[in-house]
Amino acid sequence: MKNLIQFFIRYSIFFLFLLLETTAFLLIVHNTGFQRIVFLSSANSVAARMYQSSESIFDFFKLKQANMKLNEENADLRNRIVGLQNELIRIRNMQNDTAYIPAENDLQYIPAKIINNSTNKYKNYITINKGERDGVAPGMGVIATDGVVGIVKTVSNKFAVIIPILNPEISINSKFKSNNYIGPVEWQGEDYRFANLMDIARHVHVYKGDSIVTSGLTSTFPEGIPVGTVEEFYLGENNAYYTIQIRLAVNFRTLSYVRIIRNNNQSEWENTEKTAQMPTPND
């Protein structure tokens, strides 16, 4: 007994070391399970506030670029208004169709500002200044003026953490704009400008510069938001699928404003799909 106690005292430092390493290791392994612990992510208020105040200093230097972006977007929106007005006049002149049901306005955009961003890690994350009280929830899609950014992961009251495309944890369900062939876009962890489009079978014709957009087959993103353009592609003699490298539409290094997509039908959509996968009761 005495020896045993002596043994423990002698190696107590080593045991403490093991205990702490095991704790750290468990945190790593269960990372996804801990994602609800807002306190341990950069969405916690101390970390987020610090990022916010440092960002407000750097903001000043990005003003010119942000201005240009807004200008472009403004112009684009004005063009669309003109288009829609024409459409409206055309439709008013047509006869009333009694079977017409107006489409539900199920999408809402929440504007947000990026307060922390990385592009040079394997797993990159973005912190933004909108949270639960602004209507942000985990699983919502995030876009910028140029295209898809990522998906919301963790939400605190005033802040949220986004997983961008530049993180192997997510893939974006996408398709060719021209011929509608569908495949996931995944990032390989190397260059923040490029990602890969997977699962495109060899009979599809691929051309350099083809546009890749979101497929609209998930509730996260509506159809047709730009993801990128084909930069290079390769098809080995024995490969069933192409290796396609795409240039991402969004420049993640200069990104500072994003919009979160709130799909009011998201839960109904997902629940219906879940119910459909349950076994049918016999009768």
Binding site: L20, A24, L27, I28, N31, F39, L40, A47, M50
Partner: peptide, 18 residues
């Protein structure tokens, strides 16, 4: 743990630091 909190890499910096 502090660095992990800021960079969303739960546990990794902690492991290396210990």
């Amino acid at each position: 743990l502090t660095i992990d909190m800021f960079s969303n890499t739960l546990g990794m910096h902690t492991f290396a630091c210990v």
